[in-house]
Design a protein around this nucleic acid. Sequence first.
DNA 1: CTCGATACTCAGATCATCTCTATATTGACC
DNA 2: GGTCAATATAGAGATGATCTGAGTATCGAG
Lengths: 116, 116
Amino acid sequence: MREPTFWILTALAPQPRHGYGVIQQTTQLSGGTVTLQAGTLYAALDRLTAEGLIEIDRDEIVDGRTRRYYRLTSDGAEALGAETERLRRSLEAATSQLATRRRFGLGLADAQRVAW
Amino acid sequence: MREPTFWILTALAPQPRHGYGVIQQTTQLSGGTVTLQAGTLYAALDRLTAEGLIEIDRDEIVDGRTRRYYRLTSDGAEALGAETERLRRSLEAATSQLATRRRFGLGLADAQRVAW
DNA sequence: CTCGATACTCAGATCATCTCTATATTGACC
DNA sequence: GGTCAATATAGAGATGATCTGAGTATCGAG
């Protein structure tokens, strides 16, 4: 799962949102570090709908513009849960590997090779 | 940063390894859930070397076969550190969003929309 | 003598994402 | 009155990391 996909599912987890709402929620959740591009988002919404990870919740018309709301399906929640687990394992591995690196002097050849 | 790239940098963080060693270390670190394909690995090693995130440590010849060892550069360590931070933020966001979903009944339309 | 493990390389294809553009409405600013 | 930013969705074309699959070669075990 790539980043934009992950954030879309994450944004939709608690309740349905329309496309633009997903963009805003992602910006907020990521602390401003991730800004979904419109082109990426709407293509992903179509793809995820086809895959059954999300589905159309309802259409609203506000000021003459359509707002299409999407909601996470149980398959989508499962996929996000699995991805979260994967993330947790990755984070643990990298953290521990980086800690080992720091303990042995950031690349000094001799120190590095001790104990392996 | 994509998954294979992440695991390559993670595997190289504590000390230099040759290509095949990176594959083995990744399998071990990921608890067997990630198996780097040879084609993916060696292409990535070339790319990461060109980008300066890793560099050639030394060449060894064992049983007539060359083992090329790579080591993480300080740029590479920095990149992996940044990626780790990104991962931590993503994990936090998804965990909290999924928790909110569970608290309000996994998609029941009315309960979902409470309080937003 | 075949099989699995070791060790690296390359060609071709896929596909999610990115960039850019288009369309349309509303409200604010000057 | 005109432009700009925000809201809201959509499509075309390009990119590029990754995947698949095959190839090459050595060594030890069964």
